[in-house]
Write a protein that binds this DNA or RNA. Structure first.
Lengths: 192, 192
DNA sequence: CCGATGCTATGTCGGTCGTCATACATGTCA
DNA sequence: TGACATGTATGACGACCGACATAGCATCGG
């Protein structure tokens, strides 16, 4: 009973996790369901059972997982930080570390969903907006707690996320983390 | 003769142009050759003739076209600018204008090629790096002409391109140009 | 008029997604 | 205890769509 539910959740989670990895590496359309199944060691028929919406629903959940992890990381970093600048730095360094550690393979999970403009499902169209909004709101909330005015906090959150996304793309293309360092310098200069 | 060559070049160019638009809107894998043919009003069978390398070669040329246009725009903007900050602003505003004018559909042509990590061809893997390198070099060159030290110029060019890429993604997802404005503020603050 | 070259329409093959009939495990009841 | 019923899980199948190759056509030069 608990076992069954546990297994079910387990298989689901493994699929979502595998989908997230593949999205980060290859994007949406380049990732076949068979890729996800191979990596998660799940049988083909399970997809439709766990995700009636098919591939689109799987991607939506993968994006949700990604943004949740980002928010968790932001909260942890904020607890350890003493200024907005430190939180900005932590956020960008986390992205850089993941990218370099994966040999410039793993970027952002959400970006491909935005760029590939998938008309597969309405949810999938909306998930990019929701995910970024969630992450930006989390950052902005902590910036306000550090004493910034709400408008300034929002703007700083915007550039932090945009800076990370852009650095992920260019650093990945160049196979060089320099854009991250330069971006961190610019973003943390002139703010407390 | 001249006519024939002209027609041939014309058809080629229209296909490359259509491919570039579709890449900006949908990315690589979501764009079918049939989409390119429909938009370019080219005959169905002529792809392989004009582009023996197939879809990958078409994408490479589209990326090359994109980066060439970027460099041209940079040169023009640099001629009209009097400081690095003005060039940075012009570069970002151009991206923002294109995005908003297309109702948040047209992003960057190169980014999807990086993100979708296509193993379709070696050229395609390399084109992302080359294209960004070209654009960054163009920007950095003008920054040096404005008096910046080479290292500083390169760093500023890195963040300018990364900032534009990131703003394109987040602004597109949010359907709001605010990230561009915030990024422009941050990047032009503290530099001559 | 004929040969050759640039150019195009059609066919083929491979791959992906979604579905379905079947096998299974678990909990139930005689 | 042992057979059954219920809802879950799976491997195989079919329809579709993609890129690519080839055979045929128009056009031009000799």
């Amino acid at each position: 009973m608990g076992d069954m539910a546990g297994r079910r959740t387990d298989a689901r989670q493994k699929m979502v996790s595998a989908a997230r990895e593949l999205l980060r590496e290859q994007g949406y359309h380049a990732t076949a369901l068979s890729d996800v199944l191979r990596r998660s060691e799940a049988p083909r028929g399970s997809v439709y059972f766990h995700f009636p919406g098919g591939k689109a629903e799987l991607a939506v959940e993968a994006a949700a997982l990604h943004s949740q992890e980002q928010v968790s990381a932001i909260d942890s970093a904020a607890a350890a930080a003493t200024s907005p600048a430190e939180l900005v730095r932590a956020y960008l360094e986390r992205a850089r570390t993941n990218l370099v550690a994966s040999d410039y393979r793993q970027g952002c999970t959400i970006a491909p969903l935005v760029i590939e403009s998938t008309r597969d499902s309405d949810e999938l169209d909306a998930v990019g907006r929701r995910s970024f909004e969630t992450i930006i709101a989390a950052l902005a909330g902590h910036f306000v707690a550090f004493g910034l005015a709400p408008d300034d906090a929002r703007r700083l959150a915007d550039v932090t996320v945009a800076g990370a996304e852009g650095a992920l793309i260019t650093a990945r293309a160049l196979r060089d983390p320099a854009p991250f360092d330069a971006m961190i310098d610019v973003l943390t200069r002139g703010i407390a």
